[in-house]
Simulated scan of single mutants.
Amino acid sequence: MKQRICIIGCGWLGFPLAKSLVKKGHLVKGSTTSSEKISTLNSEGIEGFLVQVSSEGLLGAIENCLADCDVLVLNIPPGLRKNPEANYVKQMQHLLPYVEVSAVKHVVFISSTSVYDDDESMPIISETSPTSTSANSAKQLLSVEALFQNNSSFKTTILRFSGLFGEDRHPATFLSGKTNLKHPDAPVNLIHQKDCISIIHTIIEQNIWNTVFNASTPSHPTRKNYYTSICEAKNLPLPSFDTAQISKGKIIDSTKLARVLGYEFKIKL
C-alpha cells in the first residue's frame, strides 16, 4: 500500500532509504540541513525541505515536511562523540510538538545499541537487558526514546542499530594502521546499510509498532580477528591491538527482530 512517509535526516542512511521507498511507490518527503542538497533530493523524487534542529530551537519548513505524512522515520544522530556537550534531548523536545500536531501516526525512531554497556563477561544483550545508567550518550538516547514511546499522539517503534557499515564506509578503514587498539577479544556488532533499509521497509509494510528492536548482524567475530581480516582483504595496513588489558564488550542479540518480522539478514560479516 502506497504511504506518505517523512524522513527527518536524509544523510548517509536516510537518503538511500528515501530513494528505496520512492522506488517502492511511496510518496516521500525528506529533510536536510544543506540547502545545496534540496535539488538532489528533488531529482530523486523526494520532496526536500531544509530543516535544522539544535538545542536552541528548530529552523526551517518542518510543518510542510511533516504535512499529510502518516509515517515518520526520525534519523537524526545525536552526534555526542564529536560534541559530548550537545543536548540531544533538548533538540528532540523542540521537534516533538511539531510531530504531535501533524498527521503522523507512526514513528520509526533510529536509536543505537550503545544504550547497553560493555562488560568483561561479554553478555548477550536482548531488548530486555539492562541499559546503561552512567554513559551520557546512552542516557540521552534513552530519554529521547521514552519521549516518543510515551507519547499518545502516535505509535513508535524503536530501532537500535549496531555499528553501521556499507560499501563506502567500513570501520576497518578507520582502524587500519592504528596501534594499541583496545578490546581485541570483544565481539563485533555491526549491521550493513542494506539491512538497515530493508528492516525499516519491513516495519512499515507490516505495521509493527509500539515495540523495540535490536538490529545487528547475527555473527560476532572478535574485533582483532575481524578487523585484521578485513584489512588484509582490502590490502590495508593492519591494525594492532593491546592484548595486555582485559577486553570488554557485548553480543547484540537480534532474535526478536528476526522472529517478529520474519527477517533474514542479507549481508553477513
Rank of each mutant, 00 (worst) to 15 (best):
K2A: 01
R4K: 11
G9C: 04
G11H: 05
G11M: 00
G14W: 09
G14V: 02
P16L: 12
A18I: 05
K19Y: 07
K19S: 10
K19L: 10
K19Q: 15
K19T: 14
S20Y: 05
L21H: 07
K23W: 06
G30E: 05
S34I: 04
K37I: 00
I38M: 03
T40K: 06
L41G: 05
N42W: 01
S43H: 12
G45C: 10
I46V: 13
S55R: 12
S55C: 06
E56L: 11
L58M: 02
A61T: 14
N64V: 03
C65P: 00
L66T: 10
A67I: 10
L74T: 01
L74C: 05
P78G: 01
P78Y: 09
P78K: 08
L80P: 00
R81S: 08
K82H: 07
N83S: 08
P84K: 00
P84H: 03
P84F: 05
E85V: 03
N87C: 07
Y88N: 02
K90Y: 03
L96C: 08
P97F: 09
Y98Q: 12
V99R: 08
E100H: 06
A103L: 03
V104P: 04
H106A: 05
F109Y: 14
F109I: 04
S111T: 01
S111F: 00
S114L: 02
D119G: 14
E120I: 15
M122G: 13
P123L: 15
I125D: 14
S126Q: 14
T128V: 14
T128S: 15
T128G: 10
S129E: 10
S129P: 12
T131P: 06
T133L: 15
T133V: 15
A135W: 00
A135P: 02
N136K: 15
L141V: 04
L142N: 05
V144T: 04
V144H: 02
V144F: 00
E145D: 04
E145F: 00
F148E: 01
N150K: 12
T156L: 03
T157E: 08
I158S: 06
R160L: 11
G163M: 06
G166V: 03
G166M: 10
G166E: 06
E167I: 15
D168G: 11
D168T: 15
H170M: 11
P171A: 12
P171G: 12
P171F: 13
A172K: 09
A172D: 08
T173G: 00
N180G: 07
L181R: 02
V188G: 12
I191N: 09
H192A: 10
Q193W: 03
Q193N: 07
I200E: 04
I203H: 03
I204A: 04
I204R: 05
Q206H: 02
N207M: 00
I208W: 02
I208A: 04
N210M: 01
N214A: 11
A215V: 11
H220T: 12
T222L: 13
T222D: 13
R223G: 13
R223P: 12
N225R: 11
N225K: 13
Y226G: 07
Y227I: 13
Y227R: 12
S229T: 11
I230W: 09
N235G: 09
P239R: 10
T243W: 02
Q245W: 03
I246G: 12
I251Y: 08
I252D: 04
D253I: 08
L261T: 07
K266D: 05
K266S: 08
I267E: 05
I267N: 01
I267Q: 00
K268W: 07
K268V: 09
